[in-house]
Simulated assay, not measured.
Amino acid sequence: MGDHVRSLVLTDADLEQYAAEHAAGERPGLRPYGMERLEDLGHRLRSVPMRAGGRLVEALEHRTGRRFGRALRAAPVARDSDLVLAVLEQWAWAPGVLARVPRSPYWRLPLVSVVCWAAEDLRTRPERERRRVRALLARSDLVGYWSRNQTETYVAHGIEPDRLVPLTFGVETAFFDGDPDRERDIEVLSVGVDRGRDYATLAAAMRGSTVQVQVLSRPANLAGLDLPPNVRAIGTVPQREYAALLRRARVVVVATHDLAYPTGQTVALEAAAAGAAVVVTWTQAMSEYFSDGETALMPPVGDPLALRGSVERLVADDGLRRRLGHAGREHVLRGHDSARMWDELDRALVERELRR
């Protein structure tokens, strides 16, 4: 293995800006998703700044959902890179296409795609969109994803098992560190903007309850819902303030739909790291992250009575809340720190001979 592997990173963040925001205390890690761990493993992470690509490019990207402007601007960097790391599927499309264009800077450049929604799209989207997802995955030399239950879906759609690597999603535990025994002044906090959030079940569960719930989300996620008086929407906040809210919350509830991927795992893990007791909907994907009654309470999908019972039980039982808070925090520290996720990815790159 050489001293460095030159890895071109395409993701939603500008690496240098992200590092500057981290230095100011506004981001949990030096790189998005804690990928600075790859630098410890011999990767030289490289990228190009995020910037507008002109009206035509912006219009085409918005219309197609395919981000290609940044990949084109990164062509000089790609020319002397060893691989492309695309984190989230919208960033994998352009390098995947260009890798098959002779004389392109991306020609035959290994593409490593870390995807989130692809398995769910393969299960539920119209055939035209499924073809697009299959093409994206087929062009990727390695596909990482965040729960093992998705493997069967990918294989059923023709993706070879030796190109699939389930990753253990992790969070930056130092940034979200909290003491389960500290005094907390927020009774219940619910967080999330993912399309998998089930705020309708949360609203139904809390209607008529005396428990006070604050919901940290975008207005679009709550559109059309009649929230009861004890459920208050507080919008969104910067990450530093979000981490502080997790440390103030006695209980963090993450109500979700049943999707192929573990929707809500980021918030649930960050809340557990911060010492809050977690209530998260049980799904097959989420069962890889928490154990019902041991590290969280996990009511069934779409069951307001069960969700309400779990929340009210933790609010009323301080001993149980603290026990779950300690167990959940230790569970995240042992098994779901972000470094583990990138260790697993790098090990897969070595095993598949995709890096020096």
Rank of each mutant, 00 (worst) to 15 (best):
G2M: 04
V5F: 00
V9M: 01
V9W: 04
A13H: 12
A13V: 02
L15H: 04
E16T: 11
Y18K: 04
E26H: 03
L38S: 12
G42T: 10
S47M: 00
V48H: 12
V48Y: 09
P49R: 11
P49E: 06
G53K: 10
G53S: 09
E61F: 07
H62M: 11
H62K: 14
R66A: 13
F68H: 13
L85C: 07
P95C: 12
P95D: 12
G96K: 08
G96A: 03
G96R: 03
P102H: 04
S104K: 09
S104D: 09
Y106S: 07
L109I: 05
P110A: 12
P110F: 07
S113W: 02
A119C: 01
R128A: 14
L136A: 07
A138F: 00
L142Y: 05
L142R: 11
R148K: 09
E152T: 14
E152K: 10
V155S: 04
H157A: 01
E160T: 13
L164F: 08
L164P: 06
P166K: 02
E172T: 14
D179H: 03
I186S: 02
L189F: 01
D198V: 08
T201Y: 07
L202H: 03
A205Q: 04
A205N: 04
R207K: 07
G208M: 02
T210K: 13
Q212P: 00
V213Q: 03
V215L: 04
A220F: 02
N221P: 01
P228M: 05
A233S: 15
G235Y: 05
T236F: 01
T236E: 10
A244V: 13
A244N: 13
V252D: 11
A255D: 12
T266N: 13
L269H: 13
E270S: 05
A272L: 08
M286D: 04
E288Q: 12
P300V: 08
A306M: 05
V315Q: 10
A316R: 15
G319A: 14
G325Q: 02
R329E: 02
V332T: 05
G335K: 08
D343S: 00
E344D: 08
A348Q: 07
L354E: 00
R355C: 13
